[in-house]
Amino acid sequence: MYFQHSHDIWRDFPELVPGVILARGISGQAHLEEPLARFGAAAAERLATATEGELPEIRAWRRAFSTMGLKPTQYRCASESLLRRFRKEGSLPRLHPLIDLCNAVSIAYAIPVAVFDLARISAYVEVRYATGDETYLTFAGETEHPPAKEVIFADAAGRAHARRWTNRQSGHSAVRDTTEDVLIVAEALHDTARADVESLIAALSAELSAHWPVSPRSAVLTPSAPRFECTEAAT
């Protein structure tokens, strides 16, 4: 199993910086009050002087959405949606310890963070343009078909595990109480994306190790090294 972006995505968005974490042995039992408060405070500090739409990380995603023919304020990247809710309500809903942690890290860095249950993935995940034949399962249980040229997270079975790139994940591979092995993906497009994604991946990996019995593997991908192998090599 592996994760990668297609050649077309790298060609059209050369500023892209993706970071990936693989963690095996996750459970729904973890107490995360301290890191959730800490990352939330970092987000609140940034929002005290600017709205989410003024942050360079979000502005870069808005430009990308415009390039894809989407209205940026109609289809927001995941981190913008979370920041918007956090600014208005002062908190985020609690869903699952891992999701709560990734959402907190996402608002602290203003970078979209996606989490996939590896047991629900077929062979690979590739961020690519849709052909129009893929299926997408909503959280409400409805099946959609992303139109051709929409950026999706696709697997070998033709499932779209996210629509409109960083806009909306699928219910099919969402983290649940039975989830054990996860693939976490953070993507950024702004000027300091490389340093910020490296910092995000390091911070999130440290929290995973501190709160679960896991040994995360991670990488920051590039056009010359675009693939992350989710299966450890035999020794």
Score class of each variant (00 low, 15 high):
residue 72 P to N: 07
residue 73 T to Q: 12
residue 73 T to A: 06
residue 76 R to Y: 04
residue 78 A to I: 10
residue 80 E to F: 10
residue 83 L to R: 10
residue 84 R to L: 13
residue 85 R to P: 00
residue 88 K to G: 05
residue 88 K to Q: 13
residue 89 E to G: 05
residue 89 E to C: 14
residue 91 S to P: 00
residue 93 P to I: 08
residue 95 L to Q: 15
residue 99 I to V: 15
residue 100 D to H: 05
residue 102 C to W: 00
residue 102 C to R: 05
residue 103 N to I: 01
residue 103 N to G: 01
residue 107 I to M: 02
residue 108 A to D: 04
residue 108 A to F: 06
residue 109 Y to E: 06
residue 109 Y to G: 10
residue 110 A to H: 10
residue 113 V to E: 01
residue 115 V to W: 00
residue 119 A to P: 01
residue 120 R to Q: 15
residue 120 R to W: 01
residue 120 R to P: 01
residue 124 Y to S: 11
residue 124 Y to N: 04
residue 127 V to R: 01
residue 133 D to H: 06
residue 138 T to Y: 03
residue 142 E to V: 14
residue 143 T to C: 02
residue 144 E to P: 03
residue 144 E to M: 14
residue 145 H to Y: 07
residue 146 P to R: 04
residue 146 P to Q: 00
residue 148 A to E: 09
residue 149 K to A: 12
residue 150 E to H: 10
residue 150 E to L: 03
residue 157 A to E: 12
residue 158 G to V: 09
residue 161 H to M: 06
residue 163 R to Q: 07
residue 165 W to G: 01
residue 169 Q to L: 12
residue 171 G to C: 07
residue 172 H to R: 15
residue 172 H to I: 11
residue 172 H to D: 13
residue 175 V to M: 00
residue 177 D to L: 12
residue 177 D to V: 14
residue 178 T to A: 08
residue 181 D to Y: 02
residue 182 V to E: 01
residue 183 L to I: 13
